[in-house]
Nucleic acid binder design. Structure first.
Lengths: 215, 215
DNA sequence: GTCTATAAACAGATAGAC
DNA sequence: GTCTATCTGTTTATAGAC
C-alpha cells in the first residue's frame, strides 16, 4: 500500500463520478442535467443528493477524482544526485510519458476536457485544490530537474517560465487536438500520431535546454 | 475599403454581441441566461430573439465576431522573397505581437475565454468556421515562413507540428494564465510580465529553428 | 440505499401594446 | 425597434414509500 491518496467511493457513487466526469467534461457543468448523469450511471436522480448532497457536491467529487488520477502520472523516479545528462533524460522520458497519457490513455479522455472546463471557470475552489495538490508540486519538481540539466537556478523566473513553456506545448496539443488533427489530416490519434507529437515536444525540450545551458 | 469581413451589427445588436462574448466566455453557453445577457447589454430579453432569432443565433454571431477580431491580429507583412534570417525575424515579431494581444489586449480578455469554450465543445459549426477562416490560413502562412527560415519543406509533418508547438506555447500561457500567475507570484499581467512570457516563447522559437535548420 | 412523485424556481421563446 | 407579461417546458432538490 504505497498510495495515500483518497480513494473514490465505490458502487453507485463511483458510477456517478464516472458519469459526471464524462458529461461535465463534454458539456460543461450547467450544460449537464442531473437526469443525464443518473441515466448514464444507471441510477436515479435522487441518488446524487444522497451520495454527494447536491449537483455541486458531485462536481467537487469529480474534481477530487481528477486530482487522484493526475497524481498517478508524471511521477518520475529521480536518482539521489543526477548528472545534467541524467536530469535531461528524466525530463525527456517524463514528458514522453505525459504525452502518452494525455494523447492516448482512455483515462485522459475524460480527465482532460474536465480540466479544460475547470480552467475556463476561473479560480474557484476545485481549481485551487488541483493546483495545490498536483500542478504546483509537479511544476516545482520539473524546475529542479531543469536546473540540474542547465545549471540555472531552480526557482528563477526564467526557469519557471521555461518549464511552463515545455509542458505548455504538450498541454496545447491535447487541448487543441480537434484543431491539430484537422490540420494534420489525421483521422484519430494512434501510437504513431502521439509519437510524432512527443518527438516534436521532446526536440523542443532539448533545444531549449541546450540554449539555456550554463557552461 | 479593404476589409471584406462581415461587419458586426450596431447599436443594440452590437451591445448584445459584446455581452454575449463576455458572459459566454466566462460562464459557458448553457451557464448564461438570456436575461443576464439582456441585463448586461442594457436591454430586454425579447431583443435577442428580434436581432438574432434565438439564443443560439446570438452565439453564432458572437463566434463570427471572434473570427473578425482574430483576423485583425497575426497578419505579418512579408516581403516578396525573404531570406532565412528575415523569415525568422518575421516569425519572431509576429509571435511577440500575438503575445501582446493575447496577454494584455482588452479585446482578448473576452475573446480568449470564448474560444476556449468553443474548443471544449467539440467540432461544431462555429468551430469549423473559425478554423477555416482564421486558424488554417494563419497556420499555413506560419509554416511557409518556418520553411523559409529552416530550409525544411513547408507542408511536411515535422514543420506543421513544429509550428503548432511554437504557437501552442503561447496559447497555453493564455489558457493557463490563472495557473501561471499563481506559480509566478504575479498579481496581474502587465507589460513586464507579458514581455517575460514573450521572451521565453521567442527564445524557444529560435532554439527550435536553429535545431531544425537544414544547411 | 434506492426509487417515484412532486414542489418551487428558472429557462427560452413569444404575443401584443406602444 | 423596444418593451412587459406570459406561456410552456425543464431544472434541481426533496418528501416519503419501500
Amino acid at each position: 500500500m504505497i498510495e495515500s491518496a483518497p480513494r473514490p467511493p465505490e458502487g453507485t457513487g463511483a458510477a456517478l463520478i464516472e458519469a459526471g466526469l464524462k458529461l461535465f467534461g463534454k458539456q460543461g457543468f450547467s450544460g449537464t442535467s442531473t437526469r443525464e448523469i443518473a441515466a448514464l450511471a444507471d441510477t436515479n436522480v435522487a441518488s446524487i443528493a444522497y451520495h454527494f448532497g447536491s449537483k455541486d457536491g458531485l462536481h467537487t467529487a469529480c474534481a477530487a477524482e481528477v486530482a487522484r488520477r493526475l497524481s498517478a502520472v508524471a511521477t518520475p523516479s529521480v536518482p539521489p544526485d543526477p548528472t545534467p545528462d541524467e536530469a535531461r533524460a528524466i525530463l525527456d522520458s517524463t514528458l514522453r510519458a505525459l504525452a502518452g497519457f494525455l494523447l492516448t490513455s482512455p483515462a485522459a479522455t475524460d480527465v482532460a476536457p474536465f480540466i479544460l472546463r475547470l480552467l475556463g471557470s476561473g479560480p474557484d475552489e476545485a481549481m485551487t485544490t488541483l493546483y495545490a495538490s498536483v500542478i504546483e508540486p509537479k511544476h516545482r519538481e520539473f524546475c529542479r530537474l531543469w536546473a540540474l540539466a542547465t545549471g540555472q537556478a531552480p526557482e528563477s523566473e526564467s526557469t519557471r517560465l521555461a518549464v511552463f513553456a515545455a509542458i505548455g506545448q504538450l498541454v496545447y496539443f491535447r487541448v487543441g487536438l480537434p484543431v491539430v488533427t484537422r490540420r494534420m489530416g489525421w483521422g484519430r490519434i494512434g501510437a504513431a500520431e502521439a509519437g510524432a507529437i512527443a518527438d516534436t515536444v521532446a526536440a523542443n525540450l532539448h533545444a531549449a535546454i541546450e540554449r539555456s545551458r550554463v557552461p
